[in-house]
Design a protein around this nucleic acid. Sequence first.
DNA 1: GGGCTTTGTCCATATTGTGGACAAGAACGC
DNA 2: GCGTTCTTGTCCACAATATGGACAAAGCCC
Lengths: 268, 268
Amino acid sequence: MDKAHSSRSARSALEPRQGAQAIRRALSVLRILAAGREDGVPLAEVVQATGLTRPTVHRIVHVLIEEGIVERHDRTGRYAIGNQVPELALARPRPSPLLVAAGPSLRRASAEIGDTLFLTVRTGNDTLCVDRRIGAYPIQVLSIEVGARRPLGVSSAGVAILAALPAQDARKIVTANEKRFDAYRTDAATVLGQVTAARRRGFGMREIGLVQGTTSISTWIKTPDGRPAAAMTVSAVRTRLGPRREQEVAEILLREARSIEQAIRSSA
Amino acid sequence: MDKAHSSRSARSALEPRQGAQAIRRALSVLRILAAGREDGVPLAEVVQATGLTRPTVHRIVHVLIEEGIVERHDRTGRYAIGNQVPELALARPRPSPLLVAAGPSLRRASAEIGDTLFLTVRTGNDTLCVDRRIGAYPIQVLSIEVGARRPLGVSSAGVAILAALPAQDARKIVTANEKRFDAYRTDAATVLGQVTAARRRGFGMREIGLVQGTTSISTWIKTPDGRPAAAMTVSAVRTRLGPRREQEVAEILLREARSIEQAIRSSA
DNA sequence: GGGCTTTGTCCATATTGTGGACAAGAACGC
DNA sequence: GCGTTCTTGTCCACAATATGGACAAAGCCC
């Protein structure tokens, strides 16, 4: 084995470092729990989503409870993120630069479009909704809230982000998330199909949103290094987004996505 | 060994569960990093504060970096809480009941006293500042910000909380934090002395605040189960808090602390 | 009360994580 | 420039730690 120069250079990029299996496992458990938000997630689902064995998940979860990182809801038996997590988060007082950069664009687009607007970031293999703006139109799709977290691929935002990634990376993520797709009634093949379509079209779309009768359109937002870090999404009841308006909305989103990318570049 | 009924009953209270050393260690590292806020903490200080060996801390920290939980500032080489922590925290949307319950009291006390007011919670062996209100008086002590985290015992809020705990628990915490006191130029004996004084007096006080020339007064706030969970603190330049005014301010703080306790009880 | 699903526990085992010892940078002095 | 002292980073033999198969208990639904 060539141990000569395997260290320094290759290390930072390829994520090899070992000697902490348990810590990594605990974190993947936490990320699954985060997707369950206030209500939490039953143990069996964590087992399914992480691919770990039940005793292992059980042990991890209960240690995290003792440490205050996880809570168990007595009524339901579900496990959820505990209140020490926000406490740790207070150590980072500044709002993310993306949120700052996106502010004006979200305001403009929301006023112009009138339907609900979402800003979603990529975090690992998940999408995470970090901002939501309600529009002026009387029927709004409010199912997704700030903090909502889903496997990349199941929402139109996730599809858009996957579409903007190198095809190989996208495929790797979809494979990694495969086990979690069942819970959202989709599968790897469907997701990959939507990604290809989005790549061709230039923006992501789900004609059948996660909520019945809604449609979503998403554009990706890239950081200066060319990697998609977020997506901007409009969701509306299906009848509001016919072919004509779809094109119109997409153009606004594309324009504002470019404007956000510009704002990030000049803030860095 | 009596394994008969060692499980179920004793488990929840006495924190025994094992099989996750590495996870616990990673968490204690995280809590130290949280105390470093944006600037972070040098590796050596994490080693000192946690009592772990350097290779171990190094390994843990770097795995956490790969996972996005920790960041390393390239200029300084210091380690800090990473941006995935706030992302996980988004899973808990509700503000803590304490913050809600304390709102009106903080507003009243701040208006009445005119000096800077802090709400500090206990989290494990640390105090964590969760709210700050600036008063009307032109000289304000602003050194402590929301998110500031310190070992229980080094601030007047910490002393107040320790004073309200059973003496034995307080001593245990002080011992656990001993290694971290150097960094704040104090030691276990001094802290225990202040705790005793606070217990007699009915409120916590530091004549020489963490910042030169300031004085702080803190009252503890107990949850319905009788355990002190937080403290309310006034900080001012020393000359503002002579013996007469000290008594006056303490009375307001004591009154509002009871009022917060009442509010918690009725919200639960 | 019998089947079914989900959660919790035990313990022998080897895999994982440990930390002593060593190496490589960085910051200072002169 | 070249020691000196600091902090950070890496290696690897060893054993304590975390693992997961198998079993138990607790709910839930008919």
